[in-house]
């Protein structure tokens, strides 16, 4: 699996298709996070966009190879494993972005509630921020896996589907990403930290199922 991940990482880096989502995310963080802002709001703010960013990176990852090259990789490693490597590489890249965003927020933000009166414990707050970011990365990966080949093959349908699904998962009540982000933001006025164990668990299960389904389909819909 490591050689496959290396190959897909080199593909993603060399294709420069990681740049647009990364630049957008960096700009979003740079605009939204200012020194001295309440930390819990900041964690919620940097986590939410990771969902569409992860979906975008997964699209870049699974469409990086032309069909002929994909066939060669699939014969060597098995189509399912090759697809899993492409999705995982993108998810890892999104996780790295999330780690940078969360670390930046933790460094520059004010560890207090929204009104700057109640101190927020940084350990649990950072854990909650990290889990929320992970939750968004995972669900973005699930969206990317289900809204691209081999499930949705035409780009004309794949891109709007992914955008709509990412938006829905961010705003719809009951979505683990929405629950994790709102847990941070609603806790900020009173300085209470909610670590999103349950949303993260559910997001992990949804993503595992979505990615497994996409990988299983990769040899059936070519």
């Amino acid at each position: 699996m490591i050689p496959l991940l290396r190959y897909h990482f080199a593909l993603l880096v060399g294709s420069h298709r990681w740049l647009p989502p990364t630049i957008l995310y960096a700009a979003y963080v740079a605009i939204g996070i200012r020194a001295g802002d309440p930390v819990l709001d900041g964690f919620g703010y940097v986590a939410a966009p990771l969902l569409p960013v992860a979906a975008w990176l997964v699209r870049a990852g699974v469409t990086a190879e032309p069909p002929a090259a994909r066939a060669c990789t699939a014969a060597a490693a098995g189509p399912g494993r090759a697809h899993l490597a492409a999705v995982s590489t993108a998810a890892l890249a999104a996780t790295a972005l999330g780690a940078l965003g969360t670390a930046f927020t933790a460094l520059v933000s004010d560890p207090h509630s929204a009104d700057h009166r109640v101190a927020v414990p940084m350990g649990p707050a950072t854990l909650a921020g990290t889990f929320t970011a992970l939750c968004c990365v995972l669900l973005g990966t699930a969206v990317g896996a289900l809204a691209n080949r081999p499930v949705v093959r035409s780009p004309g349908r794949a891109i709007p589907t992914a955008a709509l699904a990412a938006l829905l998962l961010l705003v719809a009540a009951g979505s683990p990403a929405n629950a994790a982000v709102s847990g941070l933001v609603t806790g900020s006025p009173r300085g209470t930290v909610t670590v999103p164990w349950l949303p993260l668990g559910i997001a992990a299960m949804i993503t595992a199922a979505a990615v497994a389904g996409a990988c299983a389909l990769s040899s059936r819909r070519t």
Binding site: G14, H16, P66, A71, C72, A76
Partner: peptide, 15 residues
């Protein structure tokens, strides 16, 4: 253990 050679290999890969 398998290897495959396609008929055309227009690989626009960044390598």
């Amino acid at each position: 253990r398998t290897a495959y050679v396609p008929e055309r290999f227009p690989a626009a890969l960044p390598f």
